[in-house]
């Protein structure tokens, strides 16, 4: 779990680097669009995740590896339900082979 002040801080290069570094999937949790404390953060992050998914499509990797969900902060039950769905979905995909050299 990586905490950041606002989902709007996430950019496509963060997500692709995470996957290239060995992660098999990334679940991005954002606040509701109208609840964004920084006004535009949540809507920006949606666009950026979509852009990262376009890149995955270009390199031939399933865009399902990046999931974007808006949930209320501190809603543990909703988070647990999301993870119950997300983890098996990622595990069902073919593993991205690890890179051997740096």
């Amino acid at each position: 779990m990586v905490s950041i002040p606002c989902s709007g801080k996430i950019e496509a290069h963060h997500l692709l680097k995470t996957l290239a570094g060995g992660a098999q999937g990334v679940l991005i949790l954002a606040c509701a669009e109208k609840a964004c404390q920084y006004l535009e953060g949540s809507s920006r992050s949606r666009k950026r995740v979509d852009y990262a998914r376009e890149w995955l499509h270009k390199v031939g990797i399933s865009a399902e590896r990046l999931d974007f969900v808006r949930i209320p902060p501190m809603d543990r039950a909703a988070l647990e339900n999301l993870l119950r769905e997300f983890i098996p979905k990622i595990q069902s995909l073919e593993v991205i082979p690890a890179i051997a050299k740096a």
């Binding site: 496509a12 290069h13 692709l16 680097k17 996957l19 890149w55 031939g60 991205i96 082979p97 050299k101």
Partner: peptide, 20 residues
């Protein structure tokens, strides 16, 4: 940003093709 994006995308692209 774009340098990290492209380098990561290339790594993923090669990883998918089992090249390193």
């Amino acid at each position: 940003r774009e340098t990290m994006l492209l380098a990561s995308a290339l790594k993923l692209s090669y990883m998918k093709d089992h090249q390193n």
